[in-house]
Simulated scan of single mutants.
Amino acid sequence: MCRPTAPRRGYDYRALIMKLSYQLVEQSWPLAKEFRISRGAKTQANVLLLALSDGEHVAWGESVPYARYGETLTSVSQQIERIMPLLSSQTSGEQLNQMMPAGAARNLVDCALWDLRAKKANASVATLLGLTPASTVITAQTLSIDTKERMAAEARTIGNAQLIKIKLDEHDIIEKMEQIHLAAPQSQFIIDANEAWSFETLIQVLPALAKLNVALIEQPLPSNNDTDLATLSSPIPICADESCHVSADLAKLKGKYQAINIKLDKAGGLTEAVKLMQAATEQGFIIMTGCMVGTSLAMAPAYLLSGASSFVDLDGPLLIAKDRDNGFTFADGQMQPHSSAFWGGENNQTNVELARLFTS
């Protein structure tokens, strides 16, 4: 169960502006266990929830402010508070992109507005955008950094998973992957270094990793120090994560990366994520759809990109102790869609949790 935090003083969460009322809520979702990457560890997912109403329809979205990009719950909330007086239910995604920079704040507003548009039009967001999401997808299941013994044991518990994402720092890379591969020999692996490796480390480990069912390596080098990738002929595709936020980034990635990881909190919403996906596909990049650690509400808009994605990494709800009601379901890595009333559906039903925000 999430623990909503108290609203900060001075914020009017029920402000009525241009026929849009809204509530902005901080929530803390305990994780099933500690989640550790090369930059640190967390035991809970701190998210922002935005609920909108035009007086007839109620819509919502979720975003995850990320410290790596200089974001906090406070800074993102302040961005949203500043923009809300300028918005209406008629604000388009492209207009929003001109009004706000990419990031978690714009993502939150954009996704809530898309949900509102779907309810007003009685048509799904997928239909409005001309997207065809997969009916079910294989999502990566993530192992956070630990000892090689514990990581192998964790891999063994999800041994039927077709795709496992491995968080690694610069220590014991091959030793850990050998043990994980033994524990789940039929699985494919995505390695995510979160900028923790040097170019020399990457060159050293590539030959061994290529023999261990590693299908993709995410952001091995720091985003501000990745020029050496242009000289690399890698047997494993290299995927840009921290180096890729919006479609304008693609020009600098060409020749260095073969894949990109699209995350809505980086792109600043579904509108820009679709633009990025289409441009990257045209330019020959492999598409991966990823996420921050959040609930099914944060995954729902990203799921719409699944039909065009070679890799899907939307296991955020699996990392949380208890997800929102009516969200995605998972079985052996198979991700089943959420209910149409949850987010972005083609009917005007309102999710019970969402309705409560405007009736409590």
Rank of each mutant, 00 (worst) to 15 (best):
Arg356Cys: 10
Phe189Cys: 00
Glu170Ala: 14
Asp110Trp: 10
Ser233Ile: 14
Asn97Val: 05
Glu26Val: 11
Ala341Trp: 15
Ala230Arg: 11
Gly268Tyr: 12
Ala279Phe: 06
Ser77Cys: 12
Val125Pro: 03
Val25Pro: 00
Arg156Ser: 13
Thr271His: 12
Asp323Leu: 01
Ile190Ala: 07
Ala183Glu: 12
Arg36Asp: 00
Glu62Ser: 07
Glu195Gly: 06
Ile260Asp: 00
Asp332Phe: 03
His171Cys: 04
Ser77Glu: 15
Pro222Phe: 03
Glu195Gln: 15
Gln219His: 07
Ala59Glu: 11
Ala279Trp: 08
Leu131Ser: 10
Leu305Thr: 01
Asp325Gln: 13
Phe311Glu: 03
Ile190Phe: 04
Gln336Glu: 13
Ser21Tyr: 01
Ser306Thr: 14
Met84Trp: 07
Met277Cys: 09
Ile238Thr: 07
Pro220Gly: 03
Gln188Gly: 11
Asp54Arg: 06
Lys176Asp: 11
Met1Pro: 12
Asp315Arg: 11
Ala140Pro: 01
Gln27Trp: 11
Tyr13Ala: 09
Leu108Ser: 09
Asp54Gln: 01
Ile83Glu: 00
Thr91Val: 09
Leu52Ile: 04
Leu318Val: 07
Ala152Gln: 03
Trp343Lys: 01
Gln334Ser: 06
Val109Thr: 02
Val312Pro: 05
Ala45Val: 12
Lys176His: 05
His181Ser: 14
Asn107Arg: 05
Ser28Asn: 09
Ala208Val: 05
Phe358His: 01
Tyr257Leu: 04
Asp315Glu: 05
Leu318Tyr: 13
Asn160Gly: 14
Ile17Cys: 13
Arg150Lys: 13
Asp323Ile: 09
Arg324Val: 15
Ala230Pro: 07
Leu108Pro: 08
Val205Ser: 01
Ala153Gln: 15
Thr271Asp: 14
Ala267Cys: 13
Ala51Asp: 11
Ile173Thr: 13
Ala331Trp: 03
Ser53Cys: 12
Trp114Val: 03
Arg3Leu: 14
Leu87Glu: 01
Arg150Gly: 00
Phe35Gly: 04
Ala355Ile: 06
Phe342Arg: 01
Lys211Tyr: 04
Asn107Asp: 10
Gly61Arg: 03
Asp172Leu: 02
Leu206Trp: 10
Leu143Trp: 12
Met151Val: 13
Met177Ala: 06
Phe189Thr: 00
Thr5Phe: 10
Asp226Cys: 15
His181Gln: 15
